[in-house]
Simulated assay, not measured.
Amino acid sequence: MGRAWASGAGGGKSDFRSDLDKLGITVAEKYLAPREVEVWPQHADALEVFLQCAGQWLYLPSFGGAPVAQGLDRAAVASVMQMLGVEDTRQTLKRLQHIEAGALEVMRQR
């Protein structure tokens, strides 16, 4: 799930295609087609927390390069879990960390 989020495969409506067309840029269809990602019920809370924390990434400066993503701010994660009323915070955090790891894998390849 994290890889799909970080690679932009959320399937939401975007003006990306029209922007490419205006700029005369051709991109292979496999990079434009939205992908569906199945979410098992036991992972729904972790995904919801992850999506709610999408703006809470921590970055470290990189000498001579772009900042490097380190992960989600754990204080923000705890706050979101509390606001959402997540009951099993320990298990949700474990599942969230798997999603986060997938997202970091993609984000660090850029």
Rank of each mutant, 00 (worst) to 15 (best):
D73H: 09
R95C: 04
A46Q: 01
V27K: 04
M107D: 02
W5E: 01
A33N: 09
A28W: 09
S7M: 15
V49Q: 01
A9N: 14
M83A: 15
Q56T: 05
A69R: 10
K30Y: 12
R35I: 10
L47T: 02
R108W: 04
S62F: 09
F63I: 08
A9S: 12
L58H: 07
R74T: 13
L96R: 00
G85T: 09
R108V: 09
V37L: 13
V86S: 02
R110D: 03
M81Y: 04
M81Q: 13
W40H: 08
G102R: 05
T92I: 11
T89C: 07
A9E: 10
Q70C: 10
G24L: 12
V86K: 01
A103S: 04
S14N: 11
R95Q: 12
D19F: 12
K13E: 11
A103V: 01
A78H: 09
I99M: 07
K30C: 08
H43A: 13
R110I: 02
K22V: 02
R74F: 06
L47S: 03
I25Q: 05
L51P: 03
A28I: 06
Q70K: 11
G10D: 02
G55M: 04
E38P: 00
I99K: 00
Q109S: 15
L93F: 05
G10P: 00
E48Q: 11
G11P: 02
E29K: 15
L51N: 06
Q82Y: 10
G2K: 00
L51I: 13
A76C: 09
I25D: 02
A75H: 15
A103E: 00
T92M: 08
S62W: 04
R90W: 05
R95Y: 07
Q70T: 14
V86Y: 00
E100I: 07
P34F: 04
V106R: 08
A103Y: 00
Q109G: 08
G11I: 06
P41N: 10
A78R: 12
G2M: 01
L20K: 05
D88Q: 14
R108L: 11
W57T: 03
D15M: 11
R95A: 13
R35M: 12
F50L: 07
E100M: 10
Q70F: 06
T89L: 04
R110C: 03
D21I: 14
L20E: 07
G10H: 00
G24A: 11
V80Y: 00
L20G: 08
D21S: 14
L84S: 05
L72S: 02
E29C: 06
R35L: 13
G8R: 06
T26R: 12
G65Q: 09
Y31S: 04
L23S: 12
Q52A: 15
Q82P: 01
T89A: 11
G55P: 00
Q91P: 01
G64I: 06
R17V: 13
I25W: 03
A78C: 05
G71P: 01
Q52M: 12
A6W: 00
G24T: 08
K94Q: 12
A6C: 08
H43D: 14
A76K: 15
R90E: 11
M107T: 07
F50I: 05
M107Q: 10
Q97R: 14
Q42L: 10
M1A: 14
V49S: 01
Y31R: 08
S14L: 11
R95S: 06
Q91D: 07
V80H: 00
F16M: 07
Q91E: 12
E105S: 09
